[in-house]
């Protein structure tokens, strides 16, 4: 068994898919693992795959062409998940979908076949990541800093930043904003009227996030008051509230503290 180890990123996984396929060892004899994997396997040879943007791009392009945009989106979201076994599942699905023996019509439907164990896992991971990203589109709270930058901190389980960047850039085209994912140590950065990007393994200076603008406290107070006064006492139902708004998100939110 030859194990291809890759970086925990979409490009990293796609590069490993490329290399594993290209190695000509036979799909049954290779496996994909993340480099963060702690327990190494006996009787296996490990090969470290360097992340290669060109290879990743080629894989992405051919997946889109043969399996369709929906399938690509699902696989891409699964690749952003926190699941340690995701690389292997993605590889198995791509082996089925991209094989020359699979006719194009079947390849396009492949992602619907929840009967298959790997497809099902990819579907679950993708749904989970997508749901979390949707939550953060709702729950990201910006605060305005002294220099006019909108700053937010989140702590996500999966790598949601690539999934929410487009939404916020479209929403605030003329704002400078930054979202820092505390758990992954990643920063999403958007400059006024410029494209957004992600800086990995970057921690902003902690005290920079505390220098608030003049009206920031006032707005936060207004918002907290609003959240209190909009609730109908006769209908109070904390359990229902918590079901929609789990406690783990509140720590980072203006009205949740």
């Amino acid at each position: 068994m030859i194990i291809f180890q890759c970086e925990d990123s979409v490009d990293g996984i796609f590069s490993a898919v490329y290399d594993a396929w290209d190695s000509g060892l036979g799909h049954a004899n290779v496996a994909l693992r993340l480099q963060t994997q702690a327990d190494l396997e006996l009787f296996a040879e490990y090969r470290m795959v360097p992340t290669d943007a060109d290879k990743a791009k080629k894989v992405a392009r051919s997946v889109r062409a043969k399996m369709g945009m929906d399938a690509y989106q699902t696989i891409w979201q699964a690749a952003l998940s926190a699941d340690p076994g995701k690389a292997e599942h993605i590889y198995r699905v791509l082996v089925r979908g991209m094989s020359a023996r699979t006719p194009a019509t079947e390849a396009r439907r492949l992602i619907w076949g929840l009967q298959d164990k790997d497809v099902c896992r990819i579907f679950e991971l993708s749904r989970r990541t997508g749901n979390e990203a949707r939550r953060y589109i709702e729950f990201v709270r910006f605060r305005e800093l002294e220099n006019g930058v909108l700053y937010s901190e989140i702590q996500a389980e999966n790598q949601v930043l690539p999934m929410i960047g487009t939404h916020f850039a479209d929403r605030f085209p003329n704002e400078d904003f930054m979202i820092y994912d505390v758990g992954h140590n990643d920063c999403l950065i958007h400059g006024r009227a410029r494209p957004w990007f992600i800086l990995r393994d970057t921690r902003p200076q902690p005290e920079a996030g505390e220098r608030l603008s003049e009206h920031e406290q006032e707005m936060q107070q207004l918002w907290r008051n609003f959240c209190r006064s909009i609730s109908i006492e006769a209908r109070e139902n904390r359990r229902l509230q918590q079901q929609f708004w789990p406690l783990k998100y509140r720590r980072w939110m203006t009205e949740g503290q």
Binding site: E138, F139, R171, F244
Partner: peptide, 17 residues
């Protein structure tokens, strides 16, 4: 400033859920 999403987006939940 702003955009709209067809499904709608909830931003918070009050004490009545």
């Amino acid at each position: 400033i702003g955009n709209c999403s067809a499904a709608g987006i909830c931003h918070s939940f009050s004490a009545d859920g």
